[in-house]
């Protein structure tokens, strides 16, 4: 039972991270905190991708001198790398947006940054 829970622990982490991220994005009003929520969500998705390809006691999927053929799945790791790169670009861009907004509006409160509405 305990080992089963331990095996599924990454999935629980994914769920917790997702919920935390979504909660931050919906309930927090500070733009920086919203972006932090987004980063949490990104981490959750990346973790989810990695976990789906994990095998207990698997080795790195490099065939040269591999000790065994019991390997973790490389595809999801490639996907995660791509996703991390995209995530960095997104975070950088959106944080710089938040910076410009603070300069121009004098606030990062999402409730006050709404010149566009209606």
């Amino acid at each position: 039972m305990m080992s089963y829970l331990l095996l599924k622990l990454p999935y629980f982490t994914v769920v917790v991270l997702t919920l935390l991220g979504l909660a931050a994005m919906v309930f927090k009003k500070n733009l920086i905190k919203i972006l932090m929520g987004l980063s949490l969500l990104e981490s959750a998705v990346n973790l989810f991708l990695i976990v789906t390809g994990y095998r207990t006691d698997g080795v790195a999927p490099i065939y040269t001198n591999a000790p065994s053929l019991h390997m973790t799945l490389p595809t999801v790791q490639a996907l995660t790398l791509t996703s991390i790169v995209i995530g960095v670009a997104t975070s950088a861009m959106m944080l710089s947006f938040a910076m410009v907004i603070y300069k121009k509006y004098g606030t990062v409160n999402a409730e006050k940054v709404k010149k566009l509405k209606g």
Binding site: M94, A98, V113
Partner: peptide, 17 residues
């Protein structure tokens, strides 16, 4: 005056989610 950035931020946020 920041208005375009506000729109860009909203677009980027929703697109990323």
């Amino acid at each position: 005056d920041g208005v375009a950035v506000e729109a860009g931020l909203k677009y980027a946020l929703l697109s990323t989610v």
